[in-house]
Amino acid sequence: MIMLEIKGLNVAYDKVQVLWDVSFNINEGEIVTLLGSNGAGKSTTVKTIQGLLKSRSGSIRFMDKSIGGLPAYKVVAAGISLVPEGREIFPKMSVLENLILGAYVPRARAKDLRDESLDWVFKLFPKLEERKKQLAGTMSGGEQQMLAIARALMSKPKLLMLDEPSLGLAPVLVLQVFDIIKKLNEEGVTILLVEQNVHHALGLSDRAYVLEKGRTILEGKGFELLSDKYVKEAYLGM
């Protein structure tokens, strides 16, 4: 069943068009990766889906409802959560307060539901429970990334979008992040991953789309793309 369907999406910043007729879809339960070099329009795509940016034309449908043009807070309420590039945690709040804010949407806000979600994310990230009183801004980059993911999970999203979650992390932590993504997917969360770490991302994904200069130029199963001639040349340096 198609969960998210993007058709003919055109997005521009002022007069500079960044996305050209981008179309793709994500089925329920999948891990889908958006590949592309810097400036290809990956972040723009997820931000537009989330409602942080407005599209010029095209349709975005989520669970059979149009969500194109809705403000971000309504998209979150509909069940899509974004872990933004650069983490964007609330630095002057404790880890726990960051997580509580993650459960702000009405559907997840009730105290008992929130405690349930807290148990869930603390099980996934035991370190966050140890650090729950610490100010988020004083944690290391890796811990902040874990917090950003955990915070996005607090709204119990049906679709989780992660924008370059491995960026700037040590190799060990990168593996940890990908492990978590896999685990989340097994627990039923559908995932849209934006990555430059092509090898890991494709190994994990059911399907992937390649964006270049704002257009979708390739689509395929994860492992197929790994051996695709173009992907090899452009992203794996082979």
Partner: peptide
């Protein structure tokens, strides 16, 4: 407070 610390992140939490 979240909005004053990071407006975009606040919107991502579902805050209007």
């Amino acid at each position: 407070r979240a909005t004053s610390q990071n407006r975009e992140a606040a919107a991502l939490m579902g805050i209007h």
